[in-house]
Design a protein around this nucleic acid. Structure first.
Lengths: 224, 224
DNA sequence: ACAAAAGTGTTTAAAGTACACCCATGA
DNA sequence: TCATGGGTGTACTTTAAACACTTTTGT
C-alpha cells in the first residue's frame, strides 16, 4: 500500500496535533429573565492571530487521553470541572493555520451557571455570548457554529439539557434551557408532559421559594 | 496557560497521527436473497499485530486533507471511489498500540455492490461479513462496532441508504438495505408510504424485468 | 390456475400541538 | 384583589403501526 519513500516523506512533515474545547454555559439575562448561551475564549498571546480571541486548547500530552486533554483545557481556562464533555469533530483542513499544518480534535463541554459565575474574566480569558463570538482566530468561527448545531441536535433527543443546571431545578428553568438552545418558544403545558413521560426526572418534595408567583416544584435528574 | 517546559516535553513525544477508514458495502446472499453488510480488511504486514486483519489506513500526508486521506485509503485498498464518506470519530486512548502513542482519525464510507464486486480479494485484502469481523488488530473491533452503530443511526433519519445502491433501484432493494442495517423486518406497505412522503426519491417510467413475479418499478434518488 | 411479490386502502393506536381553565403566591 | 407564572384537562391534528385486499407477472 505504501512505498517507503512516501511514508518517509509524509512522516518528515508530520502535522501537529492539538486539542481544543468549546465550553458552553447558560446565563440568565437579569432584565428579561431569558437564558442565553455563553462561552469563554482566550486571547492569543503569540503569532499567528496574536491578540485575537480563540478557543481554549493546546498540544496533546504524551500521557493523557484525548478526553483528559480536553478536561485540562477546561480546567486551565475556567478552573471548572465539566458536567458534560464529548468529542465534537476533528478539523484538519490544509489552510487552517498559516504557519504550520495543524490538526485539531475539538471537544465540547457544558458547565453549570453557578460554576460559571465563579470563573471570572481575566486579562486573557473572557466570556462571550455565543451569538457574539465572531471574528475569532483560525477557523474557530466555524467550529463554534458547528458546536452550536450539535448542541441543538443533542438537546432535542437526549439528556444533555440537565447538565446546564444544578442538581435541583424547576421545569421552567429546564424549559429555559431548551428555549435558549433551540431559539424558539415552547408550550409550558406540553413541555411538562413530554418530560414527565421521559422518566429520567423525578419530583422532589421541595419547592423554590422567593419568587413573585406560585412557588414551583423542584425536580432532579435521575438518568444516566 | 502552558509553561514552556510543559510544551517542550509534550512536543518531544508528539503522538503519531493516522487516518483509517471503515468501508461498508452490501452483498446479497445468493441462497436466501437477503442483503448483508460487508467490509474489506487488510492484513498487517509488520509489527505490531503482524498477520492480523485491520482497517485500511496509514499516515496523513502533509498536503492532503483528512477526507482526502480517507478517500486515498479507500482507493488503495479497493480501487473504488466512495459514494459516501464521513468522519466517524477520533480514537486516542493511551493503550491503543503497544509500540507507540497513536491517534487515529477514522472515517466511514459506503460503496455500491456493483463496484464492490469489481474489487476482488487479494493476498492482503479480504472482504468480511460485518458480523464476522472480530479479532482484529489494535482496537479495530470497537471501531467497527461503533461504525455500525453510527450507520444504524444515520439510516433511520437521513438519506444514507441510497448510497448503497445504484442510481436506479426498486423499493424492495431499498427496503433490503434498511433491513440489513437495522436487523429487523419492515412492513413493505408502510415503508413505501414513508419514503414517498420523504420526497427525496422519484419514480421513473421503467420497471425491472426478469424477476419471477410482477415487475417492480424503478426509482431514483433526487436528494442532495 | 396458482404462487409470489408489487402496490393500494383502511383501521387503530400513539404521539405531538393548541389552547382553555384552575391554583397558589407576592405585592 | 389582581397580576403572574405554576399546573391540569381536553379537543384536535399528525404520524406510525398492523393488516386485509387487489394487481401483475412467471411458471
Amino acid at each position: 500500500m505504501y512505498n517507503s519513500a512516501n511514508v518517509a516523506e509524509r512522516q518528515s512533515q508530520a502535522p501537529s496535533l492539538a486539542i481544543s474545547t468549546v465550553i458552553f454555559a447558560l446565563r440568565t439575562d437579569p432584565s428579561s429573565g431569558a437564558s442565553e448561551i455563553w462561552l469563554p475564549l482566550v486571547r492569543r498571546i503569540r503569532q499567528p492571530h496574536l491578540g485575537k480571541w480563540a478557543l481554549p486548547g493546546g498540544p496533546l500530552g504524551a500521557r493523557e487521553s484525548l478526553q483528559d486533554a480536553a478536561a485540562r483545557n477546561l480546567r486551565e481556562t475556567t478552573a471548572l470541572d465539566p458536567t458534560y464533555l464529548e468529542q465534537l469533530y476533528a478539523f484538519g483542513g490544509l489552510d487552517r493555520s498559516a504557519t504550520q499544518r495543524l490538526v485539531s480534535i475539538v471537544y465540547w463541554a457544558l458547565v453549570r451557571p453557578d460554576q460559571a459565575d465563579l470563573a471570572r474574566d481575566s486579562e486573557n480569558v473572557r466570556w462571550f455570548r455565543a451569538s457574539e463570538a465572531v471574528g475569532l482566530a483560525f477557523d474557530h468561527d466555524e467550529i463554534v457554529a458547528y458546536a452550536l448545531e450539535r448542541l441543538r441536535g443533542k438537546v432535542t433527543y437526549g439528556s444533555v439539557a440537565y447538565h446546564f443546571l444544578g442538581d435541583r431545578f424547576t421545569l421552567a428553568q429546564l424549559r429555559g434551557v431548551y428555549e435558549a438552545v433551540l431559539g424558539k418558544h415552547l408550550d409550558p403545558a406540553n413541555f411538562r408532559r413530554q418530560l414527565r413521560s421521559a422518566q429520567d426526572i423525578a419530583a422532589t418534595d421541595e419547592v423554590l421559594q422567593g419568587g413573585r408567583n406560585r412557588p414551583p416544584r423542584l425536580y432532579r435528574y435521575t438518568g444516566p
